[in-house]
Computed example of a mutant assay.
Amino acid sequence: MSSRRFPIGKVLMSASALGTVIGPFVADFNETHIFNEKWMPHAKFHTAQTMSMGVALGLATLDNLWRPRPSRTALDSAAVTASVYHVSQLTAGLYPGTATVDPPGKDNWPQLWTTLPTLGLVGLGYLLERRRVEKPSA
């Protein structure tokens, strides 16, 4: 099978999109976040907002990737929507008073174990798919 027929780049970017849809629910729809009785309702609101944003960005990525007529514009949009959630997660620790985990946990950026590989998948998938999209049809 040639790379023209099997869209490995799309598959990699789709995997990152599905992770963005599912991951926040796995990490946050539990007693540590949404069902945490110690959390204020407004903190839960922002957690819910973040989970919904993951769904919206993941679905937008999949929509852009799997359109009937692939284009560079759709691919670029997919790369952006696939990356926004993860880039914003990396920058969240720069705001005053934030921490990557709640006490008594150690603030050691456990999110990096998923965020950096996911951004790597997006980057590799984008490069592979860009070559495939820009390749002249035979």
Rank of each mutant, 00 (worst) to 15 (best):
N36L: 12
R67K: 14
S77D: 10
V80A: 08
V80T: 06
W66C: 00
R72A: 13
P70C: 11
H42N: 02
A48N: 11
G23E: 01
S88L: 14
A82R: 04
L90K: 03
P68H: 05
E37T: 15
P68Q: 09
R69I: 14
T91H: 08
P70L: 02
A56K: 01
V84C: 11
T61M: 01
N30K: 01
A27M: 13
S88T: 15
I34G: 01
V84T: 10
S71A: 06
S77N: 14
D63A: 15
M51I: 04
A74S: 05
G23N: 04
G23V: 10
N36Q: 11
W39T: 07
W66V: 02
W66Y: 09
T81L: 03
W66K: 09
A78G: 00
V55E: 12
P24I: 00
Q89K: 03
L62K: 09
P41S: 06
H46S: 11
N30L: 04
T73H: 14
L59Q: 12
V84E: 02
T91I: 11
K38G: 15
Y85C: 01
A78Q: 03
A78R: 02
T47V: 13
A60P: 03
W66L: 08
S88H: 06
T50S: 08
L75K: 00
N64D: 08
H86C: 11
S71K: 06
A74Y: 00
D76G: 06
M51G: 07
G54I: 00
S52Q: 14
G23T: 02
S77Q: 12
S71Y: 10
W39N: 14
E37K: 13
L90I: 12
T32A: 15
H46F: 13
A92G: 13
A48K: 08
L75S: 07
L94S: 08
G54F: 08
F25P: 03
N36V: 01
M40K: 13
P24E: 03
P24H: 09
F29G: 00
L75V: 01
F25Y: 09
L65D: 09
R69Y: 10
L59V: 13
N36C: 08
H33N: 02
L57W: 01
H33D: 04
R67C: 10
L62G: 01
A60L: 12
K38C: 10
R72L: 12
A74D: 07
H46Y: 15
Q49D: 11
T81G: 12
A74V: 01
G23D: 00
P70S: 05
F25E: 01
M40W: 13
